[in-house]
């Protein structure tokens, strides 16, 4: 089986973001960037399936600026075999991204595409589902467990109310949830080895895919602040009294 893993370069999850004063977006200057955490889980899962001989080749793809090379290199250091970068300065929406990914699923004869369920920057939670829709493939979103059973996959999904298990045919699209695995740290030898793994770099325009935005971002603003500072209480009696008599809740 051949796997395609989508990885996105995002502001590191530990960074407290700042909205730009002119409300055109979020400040990206001198901010630490990392691979989207859910995509790390996707890479890890693919590498584990490769270690079990279920997957033969792990191809990792990223769409973005020159710097996405760092993200692809991290995926290669974790154990992916080769990388594809689709270069663009445009900020693309999930529909456009999934069209590009669909192009490579077809071109590379992919059997399984694994993506993070959501990018922690735009929080759309759409790309995997859209990719499956475009390709007409089955989908298993929010996966917390993947088991190969003959020619199918048994996938356990994190859903409202608990866990659901479905059986899907291949080829298929899977999106990862937090508890699918714990991504490894790349070892130094593997980081060195990743430097010689092949990366194809293409210009987005060379693909002739319609990526026109459907959403116009009018502005980005700060969320409303919660009013006032915290009032520290000293005892549990004081807390109960406050909630009962001042807030009238309990």
């Amino acid at each position: 089986m051949k796997a395609l893993i989508g990885v996105k370069r995002v502001i590191d999850y530990n960074v407290k973001i700042r909205v730009k004063k002119d409300n055109t977006g979020v400040d990206m200057e001198n901010v630490k960037m990392s691979m989207n955490p859910f995509d790390e889980i996707a890479v890890e899962e693919a590498v584990r399936l490769k270690e079990k001989d279920i997957i033969k080749e792990v191809i990792t793809i990223s769409i973005g600026t020159e710097e996405t090379q760092e993200t692809i290199r991290s995926a290669l250091a974790m154990g992916a075999d080769r990388g594809i970068i689709v270069k663009t300065n445009k900020s693309l929406e999930p529909l456009a991204i999934s069209k590009i990914l669909a192009h490579f699923c077809n071109k590379e004869n992919i059997d399984i595409a694994i993506l993070g369920k959501q990018a922690i920057d735009d929080d759309f939670n759409q790309t995997g589902q859209m990719l499956a829709g475009i390709l007409g493939w089955p989908q298993a979103t929010f996966a917390s467990k993947i088991v190969k059973e003959q020619d199918n996959l048994l996938v356990t999904r994190e859903v409202d109310g608990g866990l659901e298990t479905i059986k899907i045919n291949l080829p298929s699209v899977i999106t990862t949830d937090l508890r699918l695995n714990e991504p490894r740290y790349a070892s130094l030898p593997n980081i060195m080895k990743a430097k010689s793994k092949p990366i194809d770099i293409l210009e987005l325009e060379s693909l002739s895919i319609d990526v026109d935005p459907r959403l116009e971002q009018l502005k980005v603003t700060n969320p409303p602040e919660r009013g006032g500072a915290v009032k520290m209480l000293n005892t549990s009696e004081e807390l109960i009294d406050t909630l009962k008599n001042k807030e009238g809740i309990l």
Partner: peptide
């Protein structure tokens, strides 16, 4: 079509607010 996920406000027939960056910013999109 490009769905708009998780909207928190309707401005008008085509314009909506949605949280991004874990709700640390609000995007207004048309």
């Amino acid at each position: 079509l490009q769905p708009v996920s998780d909207i928190i406000k309707v401005h008008n027939e085509t314009t909506f607010d949605r949280p991004i960056y874990a709700g640390n910013a609000i995007a207004t999109v048309k």
